[in-house]
Design a protein around this nucleic acid. Structure first.
Lengths: 189, 189
DNA sequence: TCATTTGCCTAACACCTTTAGGTATGCGCA
DNA sequence: TGCGCATACCTAAAGGTGTTAGGCAAATGA
């Protein structure tokens, strides 16, 4: 019998794709084994278990997202950079809901994925350079933006904004305007 | 053998308490059956299955949270009301992490729990009356606040703010100040 | 071509969810 | 008080998942 050619990396990447199709929650050693036409136990040579698998998928998503974010922010500043960064997260969540859910997977401290989290904060910090905030305002603002993006996307994906006016797109745009304004005037609060 | 006296309601409430002890993820027909000293299959007379059980626990948490929020907001306005509402959510999440996680459980449309979600928006709308926003700004602001609260608490519970200065408490307080200021000046963005 | 590595296999265990049908408990009523 | 009935909880069983242990055979390199 020909071998499937599994590696931890291929499993993680296939898991990420599978997550977009069937939902991150549903991705597991068994679904992934079925996907590769392989016995479940065979995965355990490449991955320590279900948690390890999900962590690796989270890592894939987090890296991919950070790459896109870095691209979007490059060469922009201020409001432009803010909107670009926000748009990357939101688009990614819509186009790759499974991967986005994976990026939210609680990864234990000490994992390599923690590093990816730091990369995201640094990207946000870069956007904030255009607003000239000192410390601790800058860290506060990073936390605010991270919370807002994650929170908005989470609620939107959950359908919270689906059945009422204004449309989610419109709210999102105006909220970003508001946040831009807030960041510009942060020092004089 | 004496009967345990199960009802859907008792299961949901016990599930909520159990969630705080062992984590919402871990609460399931089997853990709950063990908790009541009862065979797993016995739960199925009261609850349709695992999903139904979790939805009911979510409902308990959502209601309890809305009650606390209504209490906190009553008799306050403006910044006071904003801080009080925010504080209710954050305290609840810290004191009852399992219940809070339950409140985030994706409940299918048409479920009674959707109604509880609406109650939360209305509470936020009440807080915003102190800021004198028209539409669509008011709805935008509701979405902003909901996103921010959920997002901040989610990141905080995940440990994102644990290992760096300033403390989460300090950031939270200053972010609320910033949001208060933003809401007061929303119309002149 | 042979030895070795190792990728994938089978087998087995423990646990979980769900369904079907049986037993007995506790209530309402005579 | 005792009887009948509804139903709360039970046992049994099927099918799924995660994980470990050990075996066979395919690829790799000498």
């Amino acid at each position: 019998m020909a071998r499937a050619g599994l590696t931890a990396d291929r499993l993680a990447r296939a898991g990420a794709e599978l997550a977009d199709e069937i939902g991150f929650e549903q991705v597991s050693p068994s679904t992934l084994a079925r996907h590769f036409g392989v016995q479940v136990a065979s995965l355990y040579s490449h991955v320590r278990g279900a948690h390890d698998l999900k962590t690796r998928i989270a890592q894939v998503a987090l890296d991919e997202l950070a790459d896109k974010a870095a691209d979007a922010v490059a060469g922009r500043a201020g409001r432009d950079a803010l909107v670009a960064l926000a748009s990357v997260y939101r688009s990614y969540a819509r186009e790759h809901p499974g991967r986005y859910a994976a990026s939210q997977y609680r990864v234990d401290p000490g994992s390599v994925a923690v590093e990816a989290g730091r990369r995201h904060s640094e990207l946000t910090r870069a956007v904030l350079r255009g607003y000239d905030l000192g410390e601790p305002a800058q860290t506060d603002a990073i936390r605010l933006l991270g919370s807002l993006f994650n929170g908005y996307i989470g609620l939107e994906l959950g359908g919270s904004f689906a059945h009422s006016a204004p449309s989610s797109d419109e709210s999102w745009a105006r909220i970003l305007d508001a946040i831009d304004s807030l960041l510009r005037n942060w020092t004089q609060i």
